[in-house]
Computed example of a mutant assay.
Amino acid sequence: MSFILSIETSTPICSVAIHKEGELMANTDLFLEKSHSNSLTPLIEELLQHCDLNMSDLSAVAVSSGPGSYTGLRIGLSTAKGLCYALDIPLLSISSLDSMTSQVINFDASENICYIPMIDARRMEVFYKVSGHNLKGIEKMSNLIIEEDSFNNLIESYNKVYLFGNGSLKAYELLKNVSDKFTWIKGIDPTAKFYGEMAYEKFKQEQFEDLAYFEPNYGKEFYSPKSKKKSFLDLNR
C-alpha cells in the first residue's frame, strides 16, 4: 500500500494532497499572497490527521519541479526534501504545467488540438508548455514574451489551441484577435490534487530524484535587484 504526499507551491496557491495508490484521499488549497513557509507544515499535519495517517505511513513525497515562483518552489522543495530525508523515503517531481494540463485533458475529445498551460512571469511574459490531446509534449517548457505571432505555427497545424493558467488571460486577450482557434479556459491552476496518477506512475517505475542534487526548473534565472538603500559599509567609506 503506497501513500504519496504531494506538495505544490509554484504559485500563490499553497496546495497539499495525499493519494493512496494514485487515488485522491484528501487535499487542501490555500490562496496566499504571502510566503507559504508558515502554512505548509501545518497543512501537511492537518491532512495526515484527517486521513488517519502518520508521517511514517508515507511512501514518497511528490513536489513541483517548476516552473513558477522562485521562493515558492524553494519552500516546497525544502519541505519535501526534509521529509524524505527524515523518513528515508523517495522524492518524486511533477511539472506544474503538466498538473494543469491533466485537469483539462478530457475537455475536448478531438485529436487535432493542443493545450498550453501558462504560469504568469510578470508583464507579458509567461512560462508555458505545449501538449497534445494525450499529454504528449509538442514543445518543451520555456518562457516567452507573448506577441501576436507567438503561436502562428500552432494555429496553422491545429483546429483548437486551449490556453489556461494564471498567465493565460493576458495572452488570450492579445491572441483572440489573431485567430478564433484560441480558446481560454478559466480557473485552472497548479494543484497537488492532480498529482496522483503521475506521481504513482513515477513511484512504480522508481523514477526518484536525488535528494542532494535535485533542483526545480525555475523557468529563468533568479534575479534579486540590488537595494538602493546604503549599507553600513557604504556609509563608512
Results as ranks from 00 to 15, higher is better:
Ser64Thr: 03
Asp98Ser: 03
Glu21Thr: 12
Pro90Arg: 08
Val63Leu: 06
Lys140Glu: 14
Ser15Ile: 02
Asp52Cys: 10
Leu53Asp: 02
Leu87His: 10
Leu135Thr: 01
Leu73Asp: 00
Arg74Gly: 04
Leu47Lys: 13
Leu32Asn: 02
Glu139Lys: 15
Leu91Gln: 02
Asp98Cys: 01
Ala17Val: 05
Ile75Arg: 04
Leu5Pro: 00
Asp88Val: 12
Lys81Val: 04
Val104Gly: 05
Phe107Ser: 05
Ile89Asn: 06
Ala17Ser: 15
Asp88Pro: 04
Ser93Tyr: 08
Ser142Trp: 02
Pro12Ser: 03
Tyr85His: 14
Gly72Ile: 02
Gly82Trp: 11
Tyr128Ala: 10
Leu40Tyr: 10
Ala60Val: 06
Ser102Phe: 09
Arg123Asp: 06
Leu40His: 09
Lys136His: 11
Ile146Tyr: 04
Ser59Gly: 05
Thr9Ser: 13
Cys14Thr: 08
Glu21Cys: 10
Ser56Ala: 11
Asp108Pro: 01
Pro12Trp: 05
Leu32Gln: 11
Glu125Tyr: 08
Met100Gln: 08
Arg123His: 13
Pro42Lys: 08
Val61Lys: 13
Glu33Asn: 14
Ser131Lys: 06
Cys114Glu: 06
Asn106Cys: 01
Ser99Trp: 01
Tyr128Phe: 14
Leu5His: 05
Val104Asn: 07
Ile119Asp: 01
Ala80Cys: 05
Asn27Ser: 15
Asp52Arg: 14
Leu92Trp: 04
Leu83Met: 02
Ile105Gly: 00
Ile89Ala: 07
Arg123Lys: 15
Tyr128Pro: 00
Glu148Phe: 03
Ala121Leu: 01
Val16Lys: 12
Ser78Met: 10
Met100Phe: 10
Leu135Ala: 09
Thr9Asn: 08
Ile119Arg: 05
Ser69Val: 10
Tyr85Ala: 07
Leu30Trp: 09
Leu5Tyr: 03
Ala121His: 04
Thr28Asn: 12
Thr11Ala: 10
Met141Gln: 14
Leu144Val: 11
Phe31Asn: 08
Glu33Arg: 14
Ala109Pro: 03
Asn38Phe: 08
Cys51Ala: 15
Phe31Gln: 09
Gly68Phe: 07
Lys20Pro: 00
Asp57Asn: 15
Val16Thr: 12
Lys20Ala: 06
Asp98Arg: 11
Ile75Ala: 02
Ser99Met: 01
Ser99Leu: 00
Glu111Ser: 14
Phe127His: 14
Cys14Gln: 07
Glu148Ile: 07
Asp57Ile: 08
Ile116Lys: 06
Glu148Ala: 14
Glu111Val: 04
Ile18Ser: 01
Glu21Arg: 11
Tyr85Gly: 00
Leu73Tyr: 04
Gly22Ser: 06
Glu147Asn: 08
Thr41Met: 15
Glu125Gln: 14
Pro67Ala: 11
Glu33Lys: 15
Leu58Glu: 01
Thr9Gly: 06
Leu40Arg: 09
Asp149Arg: 12
Leu92Gln: 02
Ile18Glu: 01
Gly22Glu: 06
Ser64Pro: 00
Asp88Gln: 15
Tyr115Arg: 04
Pro67Asp: 11
Lys140Pro: 00
Leu97Met: 05
Leu77Asp: 03
Ile119Pro: 00
Ser35Ala: 10
Leu83Ala: 00
